[in-house]
């Protein structure tokens, strides 16, 4: 199972490090990252393997959302299937 983690907000130092640390803490293995910064606006999409997750997925979602809030970012973690089913036949 994989999760797609999206992070958007104002660019500051250490966003990727913080999100990656949180993922590592809960056993999510990062597989791929694409990110861009457009006039101070930061957008990142991360694909993570969640098979070895040490907490349940809904806790993981809440933790990332809370991390986002504390840093003024919006962070969503969603199961990859919603993207696959919506965009691929």
């Amino acid at each position: 199972m994989k999760a797609v983690i999206t992070v958007t907000g104002k660019d500051t130092v250490g966003i990727i490090a913080d999100v990656a640390t949180e993922c590592a803490k809960h056993g999510a293995n990062i597989l791929d990252i694409t990110q861009s910064v457009l006039s101070e606006y930061f957008a990142m999409i991360m694909l993570a393997d969640i098979n070895q997750l040490t907490t349940d997925f809904s806790n993981f979602v809440d933790t990332l959302e809370a991390l986002g809030k504390s840093r003024g970012l919006v962070i969503h973690a969603m199961h990859e299937d919603i993207f696959n089913t919506m965009h691929h036949i």
């Binding site: 999409i45 990859e80 965009h87």
Partner: peptide, 12 residues
């Protein structure tokens, strides 16, 4: 691989 555009469209 998941397409960035698709991810953003769904979230939007």
């Amino acid at each position: 691989m998941i397409n960035t555009q698709d991810v953003l469209e769904t979230i939007n």
